[in-house]
């Protein structure tokens, strides 16, 4: 396996109680790469992220992170993989700054205090550094979670809908930060509903759906999100984005995809058949 491969998923199947929540997905994320998972609510994006983080046992397929099988119980895994999910939980008696310091010091960061101060400023929390999280607004708590994701060394950053509860300015700042992450050689895997963030950050995207999961360019994925938001249509045709091939955002737009995908029953199908499957057909819902 090449050393720059950070995530390798082959026919990865995820679900609850033995029932898959989406079609198996196949993707590879390399260092400096950012892969976005898009799809309708309940399509299985977060479930895939949880599997990548070792919080959920995959029900099938192959999955490796940093060349090893996923096991969040290993300290080395936790040292290299940073995640920001929707877990809005804080120590009630620790201040905002102390949460960041705990993260930085816990990861052995030199000058944790300086790093925490920088992140507080960057995420607009400097004036709230010494308050308890309970007094923060929903958006400010989200910013604290995101800042904590950056307050530590990492090779892979996993984000679940990071745009949630952020204002437009902070979304732009986050996009800038994620681009810097890629430029510094970090890998990013994110689930998102924000087409702007998607196009600004992702190098490739996977449209997660019930019947098939399709690898596509960020531009096509952004159009698919837009169509989904507007009530669905079939205007977004998937485009070629070869598995594992590095590609800047928006490349190869307009070409019909020929990426083979796998249905839940193991049948091969063509990506071009349904770019909008995330919003159509019979849906299996997560319990």
């Amino acid at each position: 396996m090449p050393s720059d491969v950070v995530i390798r998923a082959r026919s990865l199947s995820v679900g609850y109680g033995g029932e898959p929540v989406c079609a198996p997905v196949t993707f590879t994320v390399r260092a400096g790469d950012a892969l976005a998972l898009v799809g309708a609510n309940g399509s299985g994006k977060s479930t895939i992220l949880r599997a990548v983080l070792g919080l959920l046992e995959p029900s099938g397929g192959e999955l490796s992170v940093l060349g090893r099988p996923v096991d969040e119980r290993e300290a080395i895994f936790r040292a290299e993989v940073s995640s920001v999910l929707d877990d809005d939980a804080y120590f009630p008696a620790l201040t905002v700054a102390e949460h960041l310091l705990l993260t930085a010091r816990g990861h052995g960061v030199d000058d944790a205090t300086g790093l925490a101060a920088e992140l507080l400023a960057e995420f607009g929390l400097s004036s709230h550094a010494n308050v308890l999280p309970v007094s923060l607004s929903s958006g400010q708590r989200r910013r604290l979670l995101l800042a904590a994701g950056f307050a530590r060394p990492r090779r892979l950053l996993v984000l679940d809908e990071p745009e949630q509860r952020l204002d437009q300015q902070m979304r732009s700042a986050l996009a800038e930060r994620l681009r810097a992450e890629r430029a510094a050689g970090g890998a990013v895997l994110l689930a998102t509903h924000d087409p702007v963030l998607l196009e600004a950050v992702a190098s490739r995207a996977v449209l997660v759906g019930d019947d098939q999961s399709v690898l596509m360019s960020p531009a096509d994925a952004a159009r698919a999100i837009g169509a989904e938001t507007l009530g669905g249509g079939d205007e977004a045709a998937p485009t070629a984005a070869a598995d594992g091939a590095p590609g800047p955002a928006g490349t190869a737009s307009g070409r019909t995809a020929s990426v083979a995908t796998t249905t839940p029953k193991g049948q091969s199908s063509q990506a071009g058949q349904s770019a909008q499957q995330g919003g159509s057909g019979k849906r299996r819902r997560r319990p």
Binding site: A31, A75, A79, E80, L102, R105, G106, H107, G108, V109, D110, D111, G114, L115, E118, L119, F150, A151, P153, R154, R155, R177, A180, E181, A183, A184, G185, G186
Partner: peptide, 22 residues
Amino acid sequence: MTTTSDLGDRRPLAVPSPRSIR
């Protein structure tokens, strides 16, 4: 381990003990 942009020159030190975290 990749030292990503925000860490700058801050090199990771030894990871602290669980007791010190508590």
